[in-house]
Simulated scan of single mutants.
Amino acid sequence: MTHLLILFFVTFSAAFMATVPPGLLNMNAAKTSVEKSKNNGIIFSLGVSTMIMMQAYIAVLISKYLFNNPEVIDLLMKIALGIFAFFAIYFFVMAKKIKPNKIRIVKMSKKNSFFKGMLLAALNLLTIPYYSGLNVMWNASGWIKFQIWDIATFILAAGSGTFTVLYLYTFYFNKLELKTKNFSKNSNYVLSVLMVLLLIITVIRLFYRDHG
């Protein structure tokens, strides 16, 4: 049970931090709340979170398949290394080029809010490699064992972390709007540092695998 609590916390935190910087999804959640209603914003957020959980499950399946083939474990670790290096650079560059006023807003009808949320979340091609990389690290740390409760906890935490941020944007965007630029920049720097730490841990694990 303890490892499930740890798994939920670290995955929730990773999902939360990845969703905090203003982007297509959270800004559309805020826009929907302002122009339609807060309930409509919540429906949109649920659509996004549902798709995130589906993508997290796909990420688990990919990681599980590769991990169950011993000959590709090193390849899996190297893939994770590449993923973390990419995201470290990506978030750092995003922090340097924050332009919140230029974020694209998609027009939505109340009836289709849920499915629009799912569609926009599906367009984010970085979600699956992000959660695949996290899955590799959590498995190496012993936090996930590819059992049904572990997988369910990982997926639920990914969806919950995402929904929590979208919920905050839906209800408190007006209060956060004046601080959006600094808020976004600092969040991206934190994510960049996190990715560097995960990259270093992965390098260390690869070194011990090669010399163990």
Rank of each mutant, 00 (worst) to 15 (best):
I43E: 02
V136W: 01
F183S: 12
K181P: 04
M77F: 11
E71K: 10
K36H: 09
F12K: 03
T32D: 06
Q147S: 14
T11H: 11
Q147E: 14
A80M: 03
L120V: 05
A122P: 00
V34F: 05
T127F: 01
L198S: 07
E177A: 15
I200F: 07
L125A: 01
L66M: 15
S184P: 02
N182A: 14
K145T: 12
L4Q: 03
I151Q: 05
G47D: 12
G142K: 10
F146Y: 10
G161F: 09
K179W: 13
F44G: 11
A29H: 03
K145G: 07
A157R: 04
Y189P: 00
A14H: 13
P129E: 04
Y189R: 15
L61Q: 14
L5F: 13
P129W: 01
A140C: 07
N174V: 14
G133S: 10
I43P: 02
G82N: 05
F114T: 13
T180D: 10
M137F: 10
L120E: 03
Q147W: 13
G117H: 04
N139L: 14
H211M: 15
K38T: 13
A15C: 02
V60I: 11
L134G: 07
I43M: 06
K179H: 15
V34H: 05
P21H: 05
T19Y: 02
E71P: 02
A85P: 00
F44P: 00
A56L: 02
Q147T: 12
F16V: 00
G212W: 14
F91G: 01
F9Y: 11
S141R: 06
A121V: 06
N69Y: 14
S113F: 04
A59S: 13
W138L: 09
L119H: 09
G47L: 13
L194E: 08
I201L: 07
L178T: 15
I103M: 08
M77L: 08
I151E: 00
L166K: 06
V34Y: 08
F154H: 01
T50C: 11
S63M: 03
V196P: 00
K181A: 15
M118N: 07
A140M: 10
M195L: 04
A152Q: 02
V20N: 04
A15G: 04
L199S: 09
F44D: 04
W143D: 01
Y65M: 06
M94D: 03
G133H: 06
W143Q: 10
V20F: 07
V60N: 05
I151L: 14
F9I: 10
N26G: 02
N39T: 15
L197A: 12
I148N: 15
I200Y: 03
